[in-house]
């Protein structure tokens, strides 16, 4: 798989009658492929490559309540910026991380992601992906059902995650 998720560059983009200028527009299929690849990188434990999928101001959010809309003033399982995600990955690499020895493995079974929102002018794309997530840790295996929402943008013509929100189980 290519490391960068480039999209075709177009000379001019007409959107709602306005000329946006030189830009790049991802197809729906490219948005779908991006979400599938994100899960694949996690399954393969290519966590540094996975982190690269996030924009510099990107966040990963796991709310704890149904319909929760505010990550900052209400309790969440996690709401982490790129630095905290990097710490999470670095911790997994640590030799003293004995709760992750052996490391957990995971497997994503995704439904086809659906493109819910598309704003080519603002480079704002939102996909919705129902999924089953299986995780094994030592001799235990756990199954979760979740909905993943990806808020994507373009940075230097590459798709990046502004926000991944993962609503798990009964949520």
């Amino acid at each position: 798989m290519a490391d960068a998720q480039s999209v075709p560059r177009l000379e001019q983009v007409h959107d709602h009658g306005r000329v946006v200028g030189v830009s790049a527009i991802p197809t729906d299929q490219q948005l779908v492929d991006f979400v599938l690849r994100e899960a694949r990188l996690l399954d393969l434990q290519r966590l540094d490559d996975w982190l690269d999928l996030f924009a510099e101001d990107g966040h990963y959010w796991m709310p704890v309540e149904w319909g929760q809309s505010d990550p900052k003033l209400t309790t969440s399982l996690m709401y982490e910026d790129k630095l905290l995600l990097k710490i999470r990955i670095d911790r997994l690499k640590g030799k003293a991380t004995y709760s992750q020895s052996p490391r957990s493995r995971c497997h994503h079974v995704l439904q086809t992601p659906q493109v819910d929102e598309r704003d080519d002018t603002e480079r704002r794309y939102v996909t919705w992906t129902p999924l089953h997530y299986v995780e094994s840790r030592a001799d235990q295996q756990t199954l979760y059902a979740a909905w993943a929402t990806h808020h994507l943008t373009l940075v230097d013509d590459a798709l990046k995650i502004r926000l991944k929100a993962c609503r798990s189980r009964q949520l």
Binding site: K72, T75, S76, L77, M78, L84, T97, Q100
Partner: peptide, 21 residues
């Protein structure tokens, strides 16, 4: 409150990075 909730996520949540060990 934002700070309180952040501490709760980082330290007390089952998804906390510091709790696992």
């Amino acid at each position: 409150l934002e700070r309180t909730v952040m501490y709760n996520r980082l330290i007390n949540a089952p998804t906390s990075v510091v709790g696992h060990d």
